[in-house]
């Protein structure tokens, strides 16, 4: 019966992709899709990112989308075993939206729900690179909550970096 059930429902297989990167960017920029830019990370920037993530950051560059004072970032961070892909929209140095685009962990997927991610809206980065808003956790999803909180801090900090670059 179990096998029959699996075979039948296999047709309904669903990717754990909740939104594509393109759709997230379009949504953030009111339907427009600006040309993607690339931020090549220097040593100091990688050090700061490692401080935020609490582990070494292996990527050499990060793609982002910029329009006016708004930027969009699609970042990965491992919760317990697998990377969680998160879209983050920053405007005027405040988070406008945080959305889990792909979730690959076995447990803790409550973090993809709006009731959790809405806590990040309007959050800013303090001088010590922390969020100025307290994020309530989810029991049993501690590591996923931590991953999203780190990515929120990272996106706000990256937004500052590209703002500095464009001013120069």
């Amino acid at each position: 019966m179990l096998i029959c059930c699996l075979l039948f429902t296999n047709k309904l297989l669903a990717e754990q992709v909740y939104q594509s990167t393109t759709n997230f960017v379009r949504h953030a920029f009111a339907g427009e899709l600006p040309q993607a830019k690339t931020l090549w990370l220097n040593k100091a920037q990688k050090t700061t990112i490692a401080d935020i993530l609490q582990h070494k950051y292996h990527r050499l560059r990060i793609r982002y989308w910029l329009q006016g004072d708004a930027s969009v970032w699609v970042l990965d961070e491992i919760g317990k075993e697998s990377p969680i892909t998160v879209g983050l929209h920053v405007k005027a140095q405040r988070l406008q939206q945080v959305k889990v685009l792909v979730y690959r962990e076995s447990r803790g997927d409550e973090v993809k729900a709006d009731f959790f991610t809405d806590q990040f809206i309007d959050a800013q980065l303090s001088k010590d690179l922390q969020l100025d808003t307290h994020i309530d956790g989810i029991t049993g999803a501690t590591l996923s909550v931590r991953a999203l909180t780190k990515l929120a801090r990272m996106a706000l900090w990256l937004d500052q970096q590209v703002a500095v670059t464009s001013e120069q």
């Binding site: 729900a113 009731f115 806590q119 994020i135 956790g137 029991t139 999803a141």
Partner: peptide
């Protein structure tokens, strides 16, 4: 049955 729909509550 588990309910976690309010942040901070389980």
């Amino acid at each position: 049955v588990k309910y976690t729909a309010i942040p901070g509550l389980e």
